[in-house]
Amino acid sequence: MGKSEMFEDFNFKLVVIEAVLDKEPLFLKELTDLKDKYTNNFEWYSGAGPIVEIKDYLEELTLEMSDLEKIESLCFDGGNEIYHILKPDWDGEDSLFDVLSVEGFQNLKNLKTVDYISMCDPQVLEPFKQAGIKIED
């Protein structure tokens, strides 16, 4: 399966990436290096979009099954670290990272729960419910 085909919605891929950030994913060093390189020169509160180099990296990132297997829970929350890696001054007050589809969640074989706080309309989470994954809000 191609890297761009695993998840239909890039913003959902960000939720998945967030879920493995504290589980020593294979890509952590590369992402940390990019973050250190580009956030130090970030023009805060300039109205700029996400850091292009980090966004490009995350879009092209192939998530390995060994990392995906570590995921038992996802959290849909505007306070997730991944959003502030991409856009350090993001305040969560717009729809920049809203999830429109969770298609591809089937790749998360060990997913058991989803914490829903924000970042999508509740109906977007219906496929989780249909698959027997518990939604907590």
Rank of each mutant, 00 (worst) to 15 (best):
M1I: 14
G2L: 09
G2T: 06
K3N: 14
K3F: 13
K3P: 04
S4W: 08
S4Q: 13
E5L: 15
E5S: 15
F7K: 10
E8V: 12
D9W: 10
N11W: 10
N11H: 13
F12G: 12
F12T: 09
F12Q: 12
K13L: 11
K13S: 14
L14K: 07
L14V: 08
V15H: 00
V15E: 10
V16K: 07
V16M: 09
I17W: 04
I17R: 06
I17F: 05
I17Y: 06
I17A: 09
E18D: 14
E18M: 04
V20R: 01
V20S: 01
V20D: 01
V20L: 03
L21N: 09
L21T: 09
L21A: 09
D22A: 15
E24L: 11
L26Q: 14
F27N: 11
L28R: 08
L28D: 08
K29G: 01
E30H: 06
E30G: 02
L31M: 05
L31S: 07
T32N: 06
T32R: 06
D33C: 05
D33W: 04
L34C: 07
L34T: 07
L34S: 08
K35A: 10
K35D: 14
K35G: 03
K35Q: 15
D36A: 14
D36W: 11
K37W: 00
K37L: 09
K37N: 04
Y38W: 08
E43N: 13
W44H: 05
S46T: 11
A48W: 03
A48K: 15
G49C: 03
G49M: 04
P50I: 02
P50E: 11
I51Y: 04
V52M: 05
V52E: 14
V52F: 10
E53S: 06
E53A: 11
I54Y: 01
K55M: 12
K55W: 10
K55R: 15
D56H: 12
D56G: 02
Y57N: 06
Y57P: 05
L58P: 07
L58R: 09
L58T: 08
E60V: 06
E60A: 15
L61S: 04
L61Y: 02
L61T: 03
T62G: 07
L63D: 03
E64V: 01
E64W: 02
M65W: 05
M65C: 01
M65L: 12
S66R: 07
D67P: 01
D67T: 02
D67I: 00
E69P: 01
E69S: 08
K70E: 02
K70I: 01
I71W: 02
E72N: 12
E72H: 09
L74C: 10
L74H: 06
C75E: 14
F76K: 09
G78N: 13
G78I: 05
G78C: 03
G78Q: 00
E81C: 02
I82A: 10
Y83L: 14
H84Q: 11
H84G: 08
H84T: 10
I85V: 12
I85P: 00
I85T: 07
L86V: 08
L86W: 07
L86A: 09
L86N: 08
K87E: 00
K87F: 04
K87T: 02
K87C: 10
D89N: 03
